[in-house]
């Protein structure tokens, strides 16, 4: 199979008479490999290993439990998804406010959430909802971030007169 484009490290011999290419897979990997990407990824792995995977998981689970408890206190807010072994991502709906409107208001106070179907339109249809708003937590998030999210949701409700 001929290479689809040329570049460094995919050539074997080049002459006026003709060109030969290296054997696959090299002939399909023209150009400088993503060296900086590999080094960056190694650094990321070292960093995560330095903290410890169990500590990361514990932090995310704690944030998840705290966020779930805090969001559960908000009137008119319903958490979607009750799986016992959930990762630290919480989907919710608020009565009378479309997820995209929630997302826009949260964005203005510096909170990034995902809104809409989440690539699961049949599930949304089955649940009878237009979509959800989803906040997710990583180990670098804090309890303070949860408090900011709760404040942001109160602001959403206030914008919509609820």
């Amino acid at each position: 199979m001929r290479p689809y484009h040329g570049g460094g490290d995919m050539i074997e011999q080049v002459s006026f008479e003709g060109t030969t290419f290296r054997a696959p897979p090299e002939r399909f990997e023209a150009g400088t490999p993503n060296i900086s990407g590999a080094i960056g990824m190694a650094a990321a792995i070292d960093y995560l290993d330095g903290i410890g995977r169990e500590a990361l998981e514990r932090q995310e689970n704690d944030l998840y439990a705290a966020a779930k408890a805090a969001l559960g206190q908000i009137a008119g807010l319903r958490i979607v998804g009750e799986a016992p072994d959930a990762v630290a991502a919480i989907s919710f709906v608020i009565d009378g406010i479309h997820p995209h409107d929630i997302g826009t208001v949260l964005d203005t106070v510096g909170i990034a959430v995902r809104t809409g179907h989440h690539c699961a339109q049949p599930l949304m249809e089955r649940l009878g909802i237009a979509g959800t708003t989803r906040a997710s937590f990583a180990f670098y998030n804090t309890e303070e971030d949860i408090a900011r999210l709760v404040d942001g949701i109160h602001q959403v409700r206030s914008v919509f007169g609820l």
Binding site: T104, D107, V109, V159
Partner: peptide, 20 residues
């Protein structure tokens, strides 16, 4: 984001048409 821009977006007219 300037909070005024948010109130530009969700003016009472828009909220009213959204509700009804």
């Amino acid at each position: 984001m300037d909070p005024h821009e948010l109130s530009d977006l969700y003016q009472e007219i828009i909220l009213s048409h959204n509700r009804r």
